[in-house]
């Protein structure tokens, strides 16, 4: 009884908010798409009222804003009803983007952790590298991405690795910043304790700094994986890439196929949610093992 009501307490508000969003979306779709219906009717010399307009706005071929069910149908059509090797399959494009995302994420995380370790252990790096790390992120990535792709192409790197490098460029940042803070989390007393044991720098790192930094690492990883996905999509835009969510969105906008753009957007959002969720699961597992999940 109590558990059931507890579940309801969680599900009910979430469901209400989701329904509210969908409702607002429908209203917006009617509002934004109505103009085209009116123009069509005026051209044909027909008088139409809201009773005609509302259902018509739900099923336009090229709506300004597609209705939720149209997007849902499009996603269903391009995932469940297409072979995943088909170029019309969203799963096919999703995997192309996801593989670049994951590779870039791993590269970015490794780079971020290495930089953080260097910054924490080396004063010269602390003073010299951090400003560059910060300024690297103040440059608009949309402007930098094509240059990176071109430069990499000229040294013989293209395709997956080139896209992944854009992901890495974005995702190393939160990891580096978070890990610098995390590796510095141990207080003077904890460091003194290690000193009284005459612990080596290596031991201080593995037994104190690294475990102290894990909560910071997981928080950074969640941000990093989400922007790694953004990076992969951006990496697909300038190359006229043959596949991926980015290529899909670009195609959609070339041919005025709003539904394709929206389904690619949702595909990307779902991928991001799944990856962030997976990191959350890993985080809980680690925290439980180390007694920090209460």
């Amino acid at each position: 009884m109590y558990r059931a009501s507890g579940l309801m307490r969680n599900i009910l508000p979430v469901a209400v908010i989701c329904l509210a969003i969908v409702a607002v979306w429908y209203v917006a779709a009617v509002g934004l798409n109505a103009r085209w219906e009116r123009d069509q009717a005026a051209r044909a010399g027909v008088e139409i009222g809201w009773a005609d307009i509302v259902p018509a706005t739900m099923s336009q071929k090229r709506p300004v804003l597609p209705a939720p069910h149209q997007v849902a149908v499009e996603i269903w059509e391009t995932t469940a009803n297409k072979r995943i090797t088909s170029r019309r399959s969203l799963v096919y494009h999703g995997w192309i983007t996801l593989s670049a995302t994951l590779l870039g994420f791993v590269m970015g995380v490794a780079l971020g952790i290495l930089l953080a370790v260097g910054i924490v252990h080396n004063r010269a790096m602390d003073l010299s590298v951090m400003p560059w790390i910060i300024s690297s992120q103040t440059v608009p990535i949309l402007a930098v991405a094509p240059m990176i792709i071109v430069v990499l192409y000229n040294v013989g790197i293209s395709g997956l690795v080139a896209k992944a490098s854009i992901s890495a460029y974005l995702s190393f940042f939160p990891v580096a910043v978070g890990m610098v803070k995390g590796l510095r989390a141990p207080d003077g007393m904890q460091l003194d304790l290690m000193r009284t044991y005459s612990a080596s720098a290596w031991q201080v790192f593995w037994k104190l700094r690294w475990p102290s930094s894990l909560p910071y690492l997981f928080a950074s990883l969640k941000v990093a994986v989400a922007i790694a996905l953004v990076g992969a999509i951006i990496g697909e835009l300038p190359t006229g890439s043959q596949g991926g969510f980015g290529a899909r969105m670009l195609n959609g906008s070339y041919y005025g196929q709003v539904l394709i753009i929206w389904s690619a957007l949702f595909g990307a959002a779902i991928c991001a949610a799944l990856m962030v969720g997976a990191i959350g699961v890993a985080q809980r597992a680690v925290l439980r093992r180390t007694g920090q999940a209460r």
């Binding site: 007393m189 003194d192 304790l193 005459s198 037994k207 104190l208 920090q292």
Partner: peptide, 28 residues
């Protein structure tokens, strides 16, 4: 390793059990 030092606060590592905290100097 001529001395053991006890600080003002216990300063146990929260990610280690009591056993593993006591084991820390032995590992080091």
């Amino acid at each position: 390793r001529a001395y053991g030092y006890v600080f003002q606060a216990a300063g146990l590592y929260p990610w280690r059990t009591i056993e593993k905290n006591v084991r820390l100097p032995l590992e080091v």
